[in-house]
Amino acid sequence: MLTVKNLKKVYGSGEISVQALKGINFTITEGEYVSIIGPSGSGKSTLMNILGCLDKASEGEYILENHPIQTLSAKELAVVRNKKIGFVFQSYNLLPKMTAIRNVELSMIYAGVSREERKKRAMDVLKKVGLEDRMNHKPTELSGGQKQRVAIARALVNNPSIILADEPTGNLDSESAQGILKLFNELNAEGKTIIIVTHENEIARVTKRILNFRDGLLVSDQEVAK
């Protein structure tokens, strides 16, 4: 469902340019549970932003569900972000002035879902992530783990093909982190394709496949032995 071929990314130009990705190749099929590990600065976030259609590769191909993403217009990319991708950020990226349910509704607003339908679906998905009693709380009234659950609910609500999570537990204490990981496990068990970036091996070991990055290159790609 997702293939990258010879993917490269260069930041800046001339002498100060940084080659963050130096030619990456891999394929991920539907229902996979993949972790991307590697030291800081190895290009993990750069890759995720490209996979999430937030940024464009400098070179190479990215094919998502048969769509050659690098050829799409800004307008089409917005639609792909809206319908096909659920992005979970390390820093949650919730809108601070909106309640949990309003935050979850956001992606549906841009999908043109009606008001009642939005409310219903937002409530369902918040229930699913275990926040039925926090729906009308603003982000400042929620713990880190709860905020990340709202963000996951928001990522799930348009029923995307793939969930991309860039260090989703990076800002959480280990207990909350465990809860979030459990949630991802459940989602994958239900069939969702998930890619998680992490630099912690314990987290990676929970997933089914590990892509190991170093210095802008994919250095190993292995199944996790269960």
Partner: peptide, 12 residues
């Protein structure tokens, strides 16, 4: 905020 909205699929 604009970045978040765009990440979630907001058009121009």
């Amino acid at each position: 905020e604009i970045g978040i909205r765009k990440a979630l699929g907001a058009q121009y």
